[in-house]
Design a protein around this nucleic acid. Structure first.
Length: 294
DNA sequence: GCCCTATGTTAAA
DNA sequence: TTAACCTAGGGCT
């Protein structure tokens, strides 16, 4: 569900509300009980994101790795201190579908009774975070964390990312670029929406073999991903349309105005006269415009 | 209530 | 290439 921008927002959220705090870690659902015991009572030193992976570094050197997968989400809550320190507003949920407090004061006397399947719960003196439905939630050593990161491609949200390695990885293969963009060892953090939208914006056919693209084309694709993902971190949602290509150019983009091709199959392209297509690519839905993406 | 879907990944065949 | 897995919300009956 969440693409890389959501995970970077989560890392910022953990850093602002929990960093430096000692956390009680538990698994109300039970499936993470053994892992929780390894970090329960430790201090959260820092949170980091690489692509769709979230790493929480604890004072005993262990690292909690969380991957939200398709449906995972974190819910947050706490007192006014906790809510006020949030770096991204006062969200109740970050991940799948973000929700925000309306600003009204909320009585706080500790975390609520877990409702449903809470895999992991982190509690500080001022607030709490619940994790539901992740693909991965495990405790690693620093070396194991390094190994995970080592298997990932560069992250467009990492200021020190090696764009050249992305360009080389794409141009080394005859695999379709639409498939390569979904490969986290090629580029980390891109998912189905950014895949479809960036290829549209760059006028690249998702079926073009990586090998067939020029270095300049792949460089431009990288730069576009950097900007799109940064916008996603800032906005907490994925908006890829330029205002002039929207039906309503004024104000924030409506949900129906946020994308060029994603979930617009059968509708007219915003730019040319073609109809947006929906194909299956590697078991995932591929949205593209046969007119703009030759 | 039931069926479907979803911004994802991994293991088995 | 296919199936399995994790969960919640929306649309339908």
């Amino acid at each position: 569900m969440p693409e890389g921008h959501s995970i970077h927002r989560l890392a910022a959220q953990f850093n602002s509300v929990f960093a430096g705090e000692r956390l009680a870690v538990s698994s109300p659902q039970g499936r993470f009980a053994a892992g929780a015991a390894l970090i329960d009572g430790e201090k959260l030193e820092a949170a980091h994101a690489h692509g769709k992976q979230l790493f929480l570094e604890f004072s005993n050197g262990l690292v909690l790795r969380v991957h939200l997968g398709l449906y995972g989400a974190w819910d947050f809550g706490g007192d006014s201190t906790f809510r006020g320190s949030s770096s991204i507003g006062a969200p109740r949920r970050v991940g799948e579908r973000e929700m925000y407090d309306d600003g009204a004061p909320v009585a706080y006397s500790g975390p609520p009774e877990p409702v449903g399947q809470v895999r992991a719960r982190l509690v500080s003196s001022h607030g709490w975070a619940d994790l539901r439905g992740p693909t991965a939630c495990e405790v690693l050593t620093g070396a194991e964390r390094d190994a995970v990161v080592g298997r990932l491609g560069p992250d467009p949200l990492d200021p020190g990312a090696d764009a050249q390695s992305f360009i080389e990885r794409v141009r080394a293969k005859k695999t379709a670029v639409g498939t390569l963009l979904m490969d986290q060892s090629v580029v980390a953090g891109v998912g189905n929406i950014y895949r479809a939208e960036s290829l549209f914006r760059q006028g690249i056919s998702p079926y073009a073999p990586g090998k067939s693209l020029s270095a300049d084309e792949v460089q431009a694709l990288w730069q576009d991903l950097v900007g799109l993902l940064q916008d996603g971190v800032r906005d907490g949602r994925i908006v890829t349309t330029r205002p002039s290509d929207r039906f309503e150019p004024e104000g924030a983009a409506a949900a129906t105005d946020a994308h060029y091709v994603y979930q617009r199959q059968g509708q007219d392209c915003r730019v040319c006269t073609a109809g947006i297509r929906l194909d299956d690519m590697g078991g995932r839905k591929l949205y593209w415009c046969p007119g703009c993406q030759q």
